[in-house]
Design a protein around this nucleic acid. Structure first.
Lengths: 339, 339
DNA sequence: GTGAAAGCGCTAACAC
DNA sequence: GTGTTAGCGCTTTCAC
């Protein structure tokens, strides 16, 4: 079969075929004004017959309204990222907007500039930046002030509208939970932070301090779950570690695996908890105690903030939501008295 | 701080500020023709000063060229989906195209129609459909023939260009691997198929048949990893099951968890393998034996097929790639002789 | 090299 | 209700 991508029919073709004027076709298309039933039908028939579809570029040009927003992110595959994107798309589509995905290669200045100018070269109603990592932070800083922008997650700065999950509260709560189980302190493994310290780390530290517990040095992992495995091996050698709070669930799984390979059992020998409530946390053995974050809702809220800006509101708004503690089996009281 | 989203500067504003004509500005922008160094610099300065950015809608209108493609998918969070999307974006961006994500709510005719007409209302150079599931299949069927389309995965039909991973080969290979370990037969748990039978299922059946092994009834799971847990419980009661090939890694993890909860050990009591080589398969305990698929590359190939169509090639092309077996610890020979 | 003029496909403003 | 006239921001002839 031969496929042909011929020049598409224009509104003028439709008008000609229907024997009406161009604006009349436009009227039946947009419903902006009444058209007699006869002509309306003729137009509809012509559209059908010609397989006519309005040219969006022309529409956007004349109306001055853009119906596309961009999501700038450094990744589309990480659980939190992809779920947030899904939430943004859902909300955007419901409001009649399309969403473009624009990947940021790294947080190197060159890559940031390239990503930003690429996005701006497109006619956009606004942009949502996933500020989960340093690349996102850089992009927010590089975006011009005359474009509607909302940042998702990250440090709260008040300059842009921002949709966040209250990570500080989440980190605080899960750390307090561990302390409540009887642990003397809680060690902390981080994913690459989007700033000096992620909210979850700040919450962890605050919980420790307000309980008068020692604050051990932070252990840094990468975004790769495997990086947790090495950390698990390392932790297995340390008698002083009884509870570990990991920056996300994948890392926690890696740590548990590493611990297991080194012969230490979770939660019997050591408690390990995560963050995010990844879908696999539930079926992981032992079930992972974690903090549940509603990323899809986060994406929805981000879009609604953006829409506010697009439609005129000029002041930055903050939308925050509290995550909830999910208790499963990976955390337990420490073995014996300090032993 | 007050943000203002004033009317953006147009090329005419730049021309006025630089004291040149509009086409001259266009020339320095596009590099279509030489401009004297003096004027060029004046234009550049004016652009800088006014913060001018070309209006993409106007450009698209006049050039008749679209630089946006759509990816239609029923999900953005599943590992294979999100990785493929990332590959598409990477390739598209390198070629100067933007990618719109358009979610399909379900495979119900209404949702399909809505999704298709929504996408077509946008000025697009082409569309990539993720045909991993029934919704994708329906969408491909509903798309008009005058738009460049490429399908990713799914049954090979020859009507559209298609990028696939050879799932039949993958399913065949991993089943043969299990048989080679000494299992009498291999049971199969499927994720919702995009057609009567997914390629991996076809490969499984073929391997069984050509080995003269019995073909047990198929067990159906959902896309949710948890659905595997219940199946695991169920399987634990059956003495005749010694090897299970799951439609994807998440389901395999669920099955292993269910088996473990019921007191059966993997791979000692029963072997379980997956498909996809999910990032967590490696750190799962036991390490999951699976079939590795390069989804990012799949996305890249899909885009390059689309580009071929956009730039004129009319005949459908098939791009296939062989997945590779990844042997880890979750499969072993069956216990004793039939025992 | 550079400007004037035309026109991409569409909607808005205006007469009738 | 309907057609005529403009004009959105840009690139592309086409003269000079």
């Amino acid at each position: 079969m031969t496929r042909s991508f011929a020049k598409p029919a224009s509104i003028a073709d439709v008008a000609a075929a229907a024997g009406v004027s161009v604006p009349t076709v436009s009227r039946v298309l947009t419903g902006a004004a009444k058209v007699s039933a006869v002509r309306r039908q003729r137009v509809l028939d012509a559209i059908e017959e010609l397989g006519y579809r309005p040219n969006g570029a022309a529409r956007a040009l004349v109306s001055g309204k853009q119906t596309t927003i961009a999501v700038m992110t450094s990744d589309t595959t990480i659980y939190g990222y992809s779920s947030t994107i899904q939430g943004i798309e859902l909300a955007a589509r419901a409001a009649g907007y399309f969403v473009i995905i624009s990947l940021i290669d790294s947080d190197a200045p060159d890559d940031i500039d390239r990503a930003v100018s690429l996005v701006l070269s497109q006619p956009l109603a606004g942009v949502v930046v996933l500020k989960f990592d340093p690349a996102g932070v850089q992009v927010v800083g590089a975006l011009p002030r005359d474009v509607p922008v909302v940042a998702v997650s990250g440090e709260i700065d008040g300059e842009f509208s921002q949709a966040v999950l209250d990570e500080v509260a989440g980190g605080h709560e899960i750390t307090r939970f561990l302390l409540g189980l009887g642990h003397r302190t809680v060690h902390h493994v981080t994913v690459p932070p989007s700033r000096d310290e992620d909210g979850r780390t700040i919450g962890w530290r605050a919980a420790l301090e307000s309980a008068g517990a020692p604050v051990p040095p932070i252990i840094a992992a990468t975004w790769e779950a495997v990086s947790g495995v090495g950390i698990g091996h390392h932790l297995a050698d340390r008698d002083d570690v009884t509870a570990v709070f990991c920056g996300n669930d994948e890392i926690a799984m890696g740590v548990i695996s590493g611990l297991a390979e080194a012969g230490r059992r979770v939660p019997d020998d050591i408690s390990v908890v995560g963050f995010d409530d990844h879908p696999l946390s539930r079926i992981w053995r032992p079930g992972l105690t974690t903090v549940s974050q509603d990323f899809v809702d986060l994406g929805r809220r981000a879009f609604s903030l953006l829409l506010q800006q697009i439609t005129g509101d000029e002041q930055p708004v903050l939308s925050s939501q509290n995550p909830t503690l999910v208790v499963r089996a990976s955390a337990a009281p420490p073995r014996g008295p300090t032993a």
